[in-house]
Amino acid sequence: MPGEELEIWVEKYRPQTLDEMVGHSEIISRLKTFVKKKAMPHLLFAGPAGTGKTTAALCIARGLFGDAWRQNMLELNASDERGIDTIRTKVKDYARTKPIGDVPFKIILLDESDALTADAQHALRRMMEMFTNTCRFILDCNYSSRIIEPIQSRCAIFRFKRLEADDIKTMLQRIAKAEKFTLTADGANAIVYVSEGDMRRAINILQAAATLRKKVDEKAVYEVMAVAKPTEVREMIQLALDGKFLEARKKLHSLLIDQGLAGEDLLTQVHREIYNLKIPEDLKVDLVDKVGEFSYRLIQGANELLQLEAMLAHFALVGQRS
């Protein structure tokens, strides 16, 4: 079975039971009662990436269904499925069959459910009602406010906060011990700092650092970050600010086309970089305003290349003023 013995540590060391999870002790204890009573409402897990939402859902499934958890759980990712119609078809096909074992329902896990439009969410709500006798939905999202009210009111909402530094360190040391290498205190601190409370990112960085060095210290972590955080976006912005528009545009094309980066992800990075620029504060705010505007135009379905080029042209104009 794919994923069973995967050497990717985020999977290899993903907690198998609710007891193994770190942090969120209140949430975990409530979820445990669902497993114990073999009964639960629809659930809405809200919170930032890498805080344990998917892991909690998988642990619930394992707890309820034991070895048959894969058969009794349908995993969907809203950002990867092609629209609500695909989701509806998959859910319908899945909900038609009975659960395996002594549990009266099956679980449908819909990750990144706030990627669905409001219309799609209304369709989802109807699905939840239609299959409520045979299925429970667990919806994962970053922000519960992006989920329509009728869905929220049908779900028990759990808010996953960013993990505490100590929780992340606990997990990292657990892995270091199992994999038999040393993780120094400054190494662990560095990982916590660069991963911004995202456990998935933290573990990925740990694995990369351990690939490079037997002893993972601060230096090893920053070595990884030098590779993983390419400076190309910053370079692109700087070229534009320096008035080298054609070169900046070439960089943009390389990022979007050669590296296949999504326009909106690139904008997120640009947004972050603005505050590192050496330009007056008021111009920074002006740039953020523009980035937001072009981000909106992208969401409206406009052409990525053209819109981001237009943004760079604006950066060039601001560069001239500063």
Binding site: L6, T54, L212, V227, D265
Partner: peptide, 24 residues
């Protein structure tokens, strides 16, 4: 993404940049 219970988009952000190191 399928094996790690996540989305393509997130793997591209979190994991792909680290792959050159990981697959050493």
């Amino acid at each position: 993404a399928m094996a790690c219970h996540t989305s393509t988009h997130r793997v591209k952000q979190d994991m792909i940049p680290l792959l050159p190191i990981l697959i050493q």
